[in-house]
Design a protein around this nucleic acid. Structure first.
Lengths: 119, 119
DNA sequence: ACAATAGATTTGGAAATAATAATTTAATTT
DNA sequence: AAATTAAATTATTATTTCCAAATCTATTGT
């Protein structure tokens, strides 16, 4: 007998691309970058000052954000301005922030163990 | 002279928590799980069949989703039902899906190198 | 053309993740 | 109470991610 393909087999490449974007923003320093430029473009040197990490490390994070299309760049003389490529990234960022606020305020911090389900 | 704290120093713990949630969903198999249960609860054994990964591995992913409060559980007899804890997680998931669709359709797939900024 | 400034890339090692296999726990049925 | 079914946990190993240090490239000003 032939089995139907699982949802994972059918959509594996989609989930892979999706997780690539999520991984791209799943880093404290890259989130700080996104937070800094979400209201408008900013140069690398300004980001270095405001975020307070090394230029080399910032540049690495920017390269990752660039490679996944999360940010855009524009050069003006010696400076390169970075901005968010798609406003929906900001919307997603904000939604997760809300989840965070809601869970830290309401949810009890007990990490649920599935074996809590005793009778 | 005393320097002002960088945004990263001031909000580091926030960004860390934020990235924890992002990391939690930044995995193809966990995205498949979220996609499967986003319309309603489902048992572990049903998920094993539909997603098509081993029970042990699925259980590990469920434990990660549980520990970060992304999913909820409910036991009924021998079965444990999993569901999404906060609908905003789904909203964020959908937003990223849209970003993905938009970028695969419109954006040229050239990975931008910052040194493209030549004159 | 040379120095200075802004930013990117490479390399290497440490830490975090992910998948598999094997074992264990809980609830139900006989 | 033994067997069965559903799900979780524990090692173990392979892969990935992260940061720092050093080096390199592009642009501008002199």
């Amino acid at each position: 007998m032939v089995f139907a393909k699982s949802i994972f087999m059918r959509k594996e490449s989609f989930y892979h691309l999706h997780s690539d974007i999520c991984k791209t923003i799943a880093n404290p320093r890259r989130l700080a970058i996104i937070d800094m430029i979400h209201k408008g473009e900013m140069t690398v040197s300004t980001l270095v000052k405001k975020i307070g990490i090394s230029q080399a490390n910032l540049s690495q994070h920017l390269a990752i954000l660039r490679s996944k299309g999360v940010v855009q760049t524009r050069r003006e003389g010696n400076n390169i301005y970075y901005s968010i490529a798609n406003p929906k990234i900001i919307a997603a960022f904000d939604l997760i922030s809300e989840v965070l606020r809601e869970s830290t305020s309401s949810r009890s911090k007990t990490v649920s163990n599935a074996f809590d389900h005793k009778r």
